[in-house]
Design a protein around this nucleic acid. Sequence first.
RNA 1: GGCGACGUAGCCAAGUGGUUAAGGCGGGGGUCUGCAAAACCCUUAUUCAGCGGUUCGAAUCCGCUCGUCGCCUCCA
Length: 477
Amino acid sequence: MKIYNTLSGQKEEFLPRGDEVKMYVCGVTPYDNCHIGHAMSYIIFDVIRRYLQFRGYEVKYVQNITDIDDKIIDRANQLSIPPRELAEKYINSYFEDIDGLNIGRADIYPRATGEVPKIIEVIQGLIDKGYAYPAGGSVYFRVRSDPDYGKLSHRSLESMIAMECAVGGDEKEHPMDFALWKAAKPGEPSWQSPWGNGRPGWHIECSAMSLKYLGDTLDIHGGGQDLIFPHHENEIAQSESFTGVKPFVKYWLHNGLLQLGEEKMSKSLGNLITIKEALEKYSPDAIRIFILSSHYRSPLTYSEEALEAAERGADRLCQAAYSQGGGEKSEESVDVESYQQRFAAVMDDDFNTPQALAALFDLARDINRANEAGLGAVEAQKVLLELAGILGLDLKPTWKLVRPVGITSAEEFGVPTIIQTSGEIGSEEYIENLIRQRDKYRQAKQWQLADEIRAKLVEMGIALEDTPQGTVWKQKR
RNA sequence: GGCGACGUAGCCAAGUGGUUAAGGCGGGGGUCUGCAAAACCCUUAUUCAGCGGUUCGAAUCCGCUCGUCGCCUCCA
């Protein structure tokens, strides 16, 4: 298996250090609802984890929650609620979102506020070794003490300072030095430390948590490309300086960013579509297909059109997974092995999900073809579901079958122009009664009346399909 | 200003030196169907932003031009 490593800028053979793959992905700062840019990142790493497991690896997956930072404090103050309450609310919202998108949960979700002792331990260690210094109640990392600083983002300290963006902090020795610990301001939540009351800086929690839960070296560390600098660069500096062990991370993986229109979708720009909004309009499978149909390292632009295309694609896969063959011949006619191999081969090449999806669509066509010819495709359908499952696609059947009814008396067509049915309007009972009524008209070859009912159902957003087994229907999204 | 990515059919999007340029959506024609729907079959890029170069051979490598985007500040 080959994986593209941001650190080397190349695809590398994937060789985890132990039996268990140690995987860490940067999580959310819960001060607002997540948008589909976040969904993109978490879906991609969910697929990577599922695929590793499929390939037989044990995976230990840790994802942090930054439940204390400037934005949480600001927003909480605006709303006049405690920061903890705000964070709690959006952590719950986050879990609803990932569950809704069929994203598997990480094994551990450590929270910054729950890891303060470990954070203090790491900071103290860095001070002791001369990599950090306290100043004015805060503690800063001394970037000049790390000769490797800039190796992930491929830039030099000189080039960073060249842009006179060196902001603030007269107390810092070097403009690029960054905070490990922030001195408490009045009214902010704070913790006691050897340097006075304060709270953790942004980058230090990830170092502390990954060291604590996964050890000195991780196999995979993931996140969006916007985290490469400064966040991940700083994590490397902190972790490698603290442990003296290199590398901190064997494979750095970064996903491309979701664009909305001409710009990156982001909370600060406010140009976003939340996961909840997306899930109201589209199925989880459609959202996943949309995201996985482009390579994870490429940027992707959100559009309604693309999501709708993905929705139809999801329908197509689902249809193929559950369609019934007409024939008696049970002999398997699809070469499932070639599809399994093709799927694995493209996923082995830096998780080429667009190619993996292409394989699934080809397999779906083969299944339909077999069914059309009355040949067996049961095994192929199982394989389709299995491979789709690696991409986190559920392919849940949405069609419901209504069996045909016989005509019991001619009177049933006595007052044919009035569509009447029992059950609460819009309920399943109501819909299925209408379908049975239409069925009777069809058997009596009263096409116009039958079509009238179908038109009424279509108006209600119900799609009908007449099959040899009966009429199936579903609510269109 | 520095670093990086990208520009492939109506739309989305793979492919990165050599047989017919994946796949999805959409469009057109057909089969099936009472009609539909779904499905299946055929079809939809002689060509990969433009211009040069390297090569027996390039969408794929190199240079330049144009255009778009990301990072360098909080961000998945």
